[in-house]
Amino acid sequence: MANSIVETVLSEARKRNARSVLEVQLVVGRLTMLGLEQLRYCYRLLTKDTPLERSKLRIEQEESRVHCENCMFEGPIQFKQEPQYHLIFPTLECPRCGGGVEIVAGRGCFIKSVKLRT
């Protein structure tokens, strides 16, 4: 994923004859598997000796939203607790009717904007 991000920005930078990239604004959904710390770490490694080196990676988190076809509930994904293991986990159970909900937001990962120096 980090590689795709870096490649996408590099190709944009090349297209615009940019000398360096100053900032990359990324949006990451809360329901993706992406760990932000690992993502930042990989970004640093991958951008070394490229025009992206020293660029600032800003990450905005996209909130989750689910929809229940049964009772028309719409809201953020719910979490349940398992006190025995001190665990909080997300659930697709509808908080209103107990049915299954669909995820409508929070699974995206996109580059919102980049700041380039020509």
Binding site: C109, F110, V114
Partner: peptide
């Protein structure tokens, strides 16, 4: 110093 440009991309990585 060059010129600094802000570019809106909306380029989806997972899409």
């Amino acid at each position: 110093e060059g010129k600094v440009f802000d570019i809106e991309l909306e380029e989806s990585i997972l899409k």
